[in-house]
Design a binder for these strands. Sequence first.
DNA 1: CTCTTGTATCGATCGCCATCAATCTACACG
DNA 2: CGTGTAGATTGATGGCGATCGATACAAGAG
Lengths: 119, 119
Amino acid sequence: MNPMDSLQTLEPGVDPSCCVPSGTPALSTEEAQRKALVFKALADPNRLRLLSIVRAAETGESCVCDLTEPLDLGQPTVSHHLKILVEAGLLHREKRGTWAYYSIIPGALEDVAAIIFGL
Amino acid sequence: MNPMDSLQTLEPGVDPSCCVPSGTPALSTEEAQRKALVFKALADPNRLRLLSIVRAAETGESCVCDLTEPLDLGQPTVSHHLKILVEAGLLHREKRGTWAYYSIIPGALEDVAAIIFGL
DNA sequence: CTCTTGTATCGATCGCCATCAATCTACACG
DNA sequence: CGTGTAGATTGATGGCGATCGATACAAGAG
């Protein structure tokens, strides 16, 4: 479960799906599983709202305390959702002092769109 | 649970999210839930493979019997996955004779990408 | 060092979902 | 009509995930 490993390694040059022969479908089992991870992260309403809030923030980043209230969720739950978004390669976590600031990784949303069109 | 109702009504002109005031986050609860439905449909490896196979088909459509084998799943399970994809507004189902043919709804993938960039 | 505050982790619970076996429906063919 | 086949539906089951309360960890304030 290596963080920062989902979107980054999605389309390496050695991707065997570029010219799939036959027998196996266009998408291999492992590829499908890896790509599904990103959509799993997006498949929760509260996580979509988290991304929306973080993205709409003026500074481009938000700390957990700013995210707990508008979602009407407990702090552990919000922290859990943020972790999932980080592991999916969508959010970046930076701890400054007591607070943890989350921001959208540049290009992450474009990468997700690329997955969709690359099906 | 009205089929054909997920992606089609995603961006009507009256979408209240275009100029959200404040207080509530950028994404309302209902909006987030509706948009999450599409990603839920994409959040399963086997469903991603289904989309991939249907999309790669020469005729642009496939029947269930062509999809059961490459996925190594039972026929009821494949039928279930296809239903979810249809209800998400991603696949179109057309029954001709004994067979049911599934094809990707034109513009559906573009609509999903629009959701991502419109967060 | 102690206290407080922000955040992460743990453990448990509950509901949803993926899957299968069995059954049902619809259609084609004699 | 009966038979066979493609597909959908149902019911049951096992596992994963969303949520919470409690707790642990980290860092600044005093």
